[in-house]
Design a protein around this nucleic acid. Structure first.
Lengths: 234, 234
DNA sequence: AGTCGAATTCGACTGCGGTCGACATTATCC
DNA sequence: GGATAATGTCGACCGCAGTCGAATTCGACT
């Protein structure tokens, strides 16, 4: 018995999401007010809060829709028989491209995923499970075909690669890696280095030294220079 | 010639920061309104915006004050002669303890540091340079005394360890690591594993298997289960 | 000292996220 | 089918971050 009420509710929820997709894409998340969204969905402002508790929650629902779409394509782009390093880098960079397609959007997304507020933790975990699950799959396949040590801990490997992914995105937003190429190079260098400890045989080609130098340039002065305290207290 | 104006300006800035430290500590960042802050600092609301462009900026300035204080103590706790693994873990966990002393505060801090908005990028870089600089120092010392391969790239090592730090904090906020012990164990396991590839000789004792199992438990079902798309479109 | 321009202070005002309680619609029970 | 409870809907309203222009204070120059 799908009651009339339940039907309407689903319909309204969909209207909101469709309006969200349109407006967020058109004018961005922060630039779209709840009132606007409600009007576009053909309902009153207060009604929205019967479906989503906060604006952030609408954002996450929006992401879910988008990311479903993206992952469908992503799966086609990663060759399941390529070396582990290549698969990891390809998948991570695909995710990176999606996230940073719109800088502003990506920052909000990363914040919500990496450091979710209590109330969003479940939704957030659900979302990056999409990504983590795929990495895990890649790792397990690599282990099955003997590319990874048999006694290597897959979960530790997953955490390892996920850490690198997080770091390069953070570095991108922090301005440490200015270009996509630098991000890719750094990611690959990190994964490769760690695979030396994890894998049997050659983990992959070394990173491009020119790009690495480019990355390093701004860190020239980071030796012991970080300690200059000001003294103008009281 | 320190003009009267400049003196007043510095004084007012300090009043704001002192009020911020008191109020943010007492009732939290989100619970403190700009108006309140202004009143506590003995000035009008609008005046604050002559000193800080946004509320976030006040937050970062507040963090700066706090973190200066924390780092002074932190330096005393890390033994510069201990094995690299121990130093990295000790420093990272000290930072972790500081950041998560107040869960709410820490989340805002991490978001601002890891994924800063354009306008905050400089301030944000300046802040984590405090942390990164110390890690770098530890790495370089380890390399000098031969614990790390001479041809290991220090910057890559820095990125490597920073990635792990970011990941465990993110995991903590995402609810993957419920306790401090789990965070420490995971961090140590990751660092140790990567040091196998980086270092000469034994990188350190293996992680506590019981805690690792504890961490793994929730991931039992993460094999290929991440792919269930809903089909209620149109 | 007196005057003018620049810097600073201030609170009323705007816009927005989120709440609330009055009202409307649908389900349930006799 | 009619009465009552449960569930949805709505926009006026609240609190707060950030803006703006009028008013005030300060420094420089005569």
């Amino acid at each position: 018995m799908t009651t009339l009420r339940a039907q309407k509710k689903r319909q309204t929820r969909k209207s909101i999401l469709q309006a969200a997709i349109r407006l967020f894409t058109e004018k961005g998340f922060e630039q779209t007010s709840i009132e606007e969204l409600a009007r576009a969905a053909g309902i009153g402002k207060g009604t929205i809060y019967g479906y989503f508790a906060t604006k952030q929650e609408i954002f996450l629902a929006f992401c879910e829709e988008e990311i479903d779409y993206v992952f469908k394509h992503m799966d086609e782009e990663v060759d399941p028989e390529a070396p582990l390093l290549e698969q990891i880098v390809a998948l991570s960079m695909a995710q990176f491209d999606f996230v940073t397609a719109n800088r502003e959007f990506g920052r909000l997304f990363c914040r919500e995923i990496a450091f979710p507020r209590e109330s969003m933790a479940d939704k957030s975990r659900e979302l990056d499970a999409q990504y983590l699950g795929r990495v895990m799959q890649i790792i397990q396949r690599a282990q099955q075909r003997g590319e990874l040590h048999a006694d290597a801990d897959p979960l530790l490997a997953l955490a390892n690669f996920h850490a690198f992914y997080l770091m390069v995105i953070s570095g991108w937003y922090g301005g440490y890696f200015g270009t996509r190429e630098m991000v890719a190079t750094m990611l690959r260098a990190l994964c490769r280095q760690s695979l030396i400890g994890w894998s049997n045989g050659d983990p992959g080609t070394a990173p491009d030294q020119k790009v690495m130098d480019q990355i390093k340039a701004p860190f020239a002065e980071m030796n012991p220079a970080a300690l200059d305290l000001q003294e103008d207290d009281l």
